[in-house]
Write a protein that binds this DNA or RNA. Structure first.
Length: 438
RNA sequence: CGGAGAGUAGCUCAGCCUGGUAGAGCACCACGUUCGGGACGUGGGGGCCGGAGGUUCGAAUCCUCUCUCUCCGACCA
């Protein structure tokens, strides 16, 4: 992508409304534009990141055996009345009337609808387990939206729903999501820590919030230090096998957000030098809720004995749009964003220090063509901005590698590679640069 | 929803108290000088001062109502 043809409105000054660093940087980098309280338009740079995150989420859900569908944003209110959530959800749920005065709700979540889909088609335990997910915009009319995309009213969420014949099988479904989540966040360069969360009506320990540590996080969290750098299962993990040891390896260590934190337990279970108290951001939440929806909605299947029974359900959410902000919170410096490579909007920022200079242009065009041919996503700054502005801009938008080409270096046959994360700069020949980056 | 604050150029803000033809910096356009870490000069474009009422000869400024946004608290992917 040539910057001269791209749409990336950088802001030199910080918009007044932005309080937290991710919000400030997203606005300054031209990633989003606020259209109303808690409602954002995604500009090209932000959109690219959002799609990268979505892709990782999708790949890991598929790997874990979940099946993608797409449910609508608008839902008939009848489904919500069936489960009793129509009244329970309160004013946080946006209700709309169509021209026929039929009431629709803008979905804040999809348990009711997915259960409706399930009950329409699934009759036998032989079709289980089943896990359906989608990645769709949600709306929750929060009293006070804030922190940019971290707490928007409209947000993109991946929500998965598992259906099992019994609790033991449901636990396996739960574990698959647990492990998939560890992998998902890890692939985005995040260290996620599952923490005990409210268990809902069924009880037990089958509810976890996935927290990433960030100084600017919204909630105080407490956990065993060993959880932070605990290795994450690689892509060869067998989702059909027994995942219990992986899950138990973590759940056996103390980890709780402030809501669930009990200081006495914390001190009893964790040696003093292993106690970690930090700020965290919730990026995912999984829980098992049994027949909470299947019973009232009569989502029943026949078991091996021929008897019908309500299926055991769980739901599993990832805040896709929130992750964009969360990753920035976890990875930035004074100059701007530092994208982890897998979610970076581009792989390489190619900076032409003297656009218009024949030799420099030629070298850049050559590098641009070769890197693109090698499949790299390159943002080529071919504008005639001053070098200082280009450097500042490149640092701000946080592309992992900057390839800097200018007449001064070219006289020596050299270009410069700067690694955004470390700030390290290296000079090398054009060929060496291509070898390194292609 | 309780408390606090803000709406004036694309952005950051001044002007309001004490009413009298709407400002600065950045950004944008033109020309020139510049050009390796957010250049400089000259010229230019851009605003019914959130909206509606009211007071007044005259309102960005005073009064009333209203809308929107932000921050702190209780709730949440």
């Amino acid at each position: 992508m040539r910057l001269s043809r791209f749409f990336m409105p950088l802001l030199k000054e910080t918009p007044a409304e932005a309080q937290i660093v991710s919000h400030r940087l997203m606005l300054r980098a031209g990633m989003i534009r606020q259209e109303a309280a808690g409602i954002y338009a995604w500009l090209p740079l932000g959109h690219r990141v959002l799609k990268k995150i979505e892709k990782i989420v999708r790949e890991e859900m598929n790997r874990a055996g979940a099946i993608e569908i797409l449910m609508p944003t608008l839902q008939p209110s009848e489904l919500w009345k069936e489960t009793g959530r129509y009244d329970a959800y309160g004013p946080e749920m946006l209700r709309i009337k169509d021209r026929h005065e039929r009431e629709l709700v803008y979905g804040p979540t999809n348990e009711d609808m997915v259960t409706d889909i399930f009950r329409a088609y699934v009759r036998s335990y032989k079709q289980l387990p089943l896990n359906l997910y989608h990645i769709q915009w949600k709306f929750r009319d929060e009293i006070r939206p804030r922190f940019g995309v971290m707490r928007g009213r409209e947000f993109l969420m991946k929500d998965a729903y598992s259906f099992d014949i019994d609790a033991a099988s449901a636990r396996k479904s739960y574990n698959r999501m647990y492990v998939a989540y560890l992998r998902t966040f890890s692939r985005m360069g995040l260290k996620s820590i599952p923490m005990r969360a409210e268990t809902g009506p069924i009880g037990g320990d089958l509810s976890h919030e996935f927290i990433i540590l960030a100084d600017t996080g919204e909630s105080q969290v407490f956990c065993h230090k060993d959880l932070v750098d605990m290795p994450v299962p690689d892509e060869n993990v067998d989702f059909d096998g027994d995942l219990e040891p992986i899950v138990r390896g973590r759940t056996s260590l103390y980890a709780a957000t402030e809501d669930k934190h009990v200081q006495a337990e914390f001190e009893a279970q964790v040696p003093e030098d292993k106690r970690l108290s930090a700020r965290g951001i919730e990026v995912g939440h999984i829980f098992f809720f049994g027949s909470k929806y299947s019973a009232p909605m009569r989502a029943v299947v026949a078991g091996p004995d021929g008897q019908e029974r309500a299926v055991e359900g769980g739901s599993y959410g990832i805040g896709v749009s929130r992750l964009v902000g969360a990753i920035i919170e976890a990875s930035h410096d004074d100059a701007g964003i530092i994208w982890p490579e897998p979610v970076a909007p581009f792989d390489i920022a190619l900076i032409n220090l003297k656009a218009g200079d024949a030799a420099t242009d030629k070298a850049c065009e050559d590098l641009y063509a070769k890197l693109r041919k090698a499949g790299r996503e390159v943002l080529y700054d071919d504008t005639q901005e001053r070098p200082g502005a280009k450097f500042a801009g490149a640092d701000l938008i946080g592309i992992p590698v900057q390839l800097i080409v200018g007449p001064r270096g070219l006289e020596k046959g050299q270009v410069e590679i700067k690694t955004r994360k470390t700030g390290a700069r290296e000079e090398m020949s054009l060929d060496a640069a291509i070898n390194r980056l292609a």
